[in-house]
């Protein structure tokens, strides 16, 4: 019976993968590809948020800072030092992983609201650093003219190429995350979430566990930051503000706990809301502008509606559908 379910899931994932992959073959609409590329960037970050929040039960209101560190670090070494893009990605991942470690260590003594406050403060400090560190970050005006990603001297400069690059990275990140949650490590994260005393009694090193999850989620955000910087070509502090951290938490909450699919779907939906006209043909420009103006309220209302009417978020709804399917 389990085998059957596994096959169904594999087929479903294959179909989803194939359709995501084929989008640039079916359309040359640059705006749409750009929006969907941006969705892929957020999927990468939300995979880390899902591990951190949905599995390990740890809250971070500062993940936009890791996103920013990755973006600025990568942009800086490529534009100023002239390093290849791959080195920029590597620096982004290493620096954000180290940042995750630095944030995790003092925060470990904190739980719940206090952990949220510490990560919030970290996010604010980094935002100020992005604004004030003009030498590296370009200050409030940001950095522009960041070159496209390139492999062995070949620039990936088409909208389709960027789309494929970002979604390949997203696929790799999701594979790593899904491997993790199905392993001993994933069980430990859930255990930590369920009962800290229980987890300790199983021989789990709670400190080591929390640090690792923090580091992984930070590194994912760093990778996303690097991709964003080089695909868009321009970054400024507002892209990495508290507002973005809150949006990331919203994706994790809306997506639901103990799930990767839920948060990924939430990331897709929430990222698309302000750019609905990219995928809904005939949606007027003014309708989109109205949505963008009310973006925060739409997010807030969505989250409240989900909490009220869809217990367990998208993941909860998916599980209920799956349960119905297996009864039948």
């Amino acid at each position: 019976m389990h085998r059957n379910v596994d096959i169904k899931v594999a087929v479903l994932l294959g179909l989803i993968g194939a359709s995501v992959f084929s989008v640039p073959l079916l359309t040359a609409d640059r705006y749409m590809l750009r929006v969907l590329t941006f969705v892929g960037v957020n999927v990468i970050i939300v995979a880390g948020m899902a591990l951190l929040f949905g599995y390990a039960g740890q809250v971070s209101l500062g993940h936009a800072a890791f996103y920013g560190i990755g973006a600025y670090a990568s942009a800086h070494v490529v534009t100023v030092f002239g390093w290849p893009w791959v080195a920029g990605v590597a620096i982004a991942i290493v620096l954000t992983a180290a940042g995750g470690l630095l944030l995790a260590l003092p925060s470990l003594r904190l739980r719940g609201h206090y952990l949220a406050m510490a990560t919030l403060a970290f996010g604010e400090i980094m935002r100020v650093a992005f604004v004030e560190g003009k030498g590296v970050t370009g200050g409030p005006d940001g950095l522009s003219g960041i070159p496209f990603p390139s492999f062995l001297g070949i620039e990936v400069d088409s909208a389709g190429g960027n789309y494929w690059l970002v979604w390949s990275a997203a696929a790799a990140v999701l594979l790593i995350a899904s491997n993790l949650v199905r392993s001993r490590a994933g069980r430990a994260m859930l255990a930590l979430h369920g009962s800290e005393a229980g987890a300790m009694s199983c021989g789990m090193d709670l400190t080591g566990l929390k640090v690792r999850v923090f580091v992984i989620s930070a590194a994912f955000a760093g990778l996303a930051g690097s991709l964003y910087a080089h695909v868009v070509g321009f970054i400024s502090p507002s892209t990495f503000s508290l507002h973005v951290s809150v949006l990331l938490v919203a994706m994790a909450v809306l997506g639901g706990t103990r799930s990767l699919a839920g948060p990924v779907l939430a990331a897709v939906i929430l990222t698309m809301i302000p750019f609905a006209d990219a995928v809904i043909p005939g949606l007027s420009r003014s309708a989109v502008e109205t949505i963008q103006e009310w973006q925060e309220d739409v997010y807030g209302l969505t989250i409240i509606a989900v909490m009220l009417f869809v217990p367990g978020g998208i993941a909860g709804a998916l599980r209920r559908i799956a349960a119905k399917g297996s009864v039948r």
Partner: peptide, 28 residues
């Protein structure tokens, strides 16, 4: 101090954490 959302089997499997060794990297 059980892990309420996990199944009985998963709870016991969590106990085996102490005597198994696959870490994050190997699992990833």
């Amino acid at each position: 101090e059980l892990f309420e959302e996990m199944s009985a089997l998963e709870n016991v499997m969590a106990g085996a954490h102490a005597v198994t060794r696959s870490g994050f990297l190997a699992a990833a």
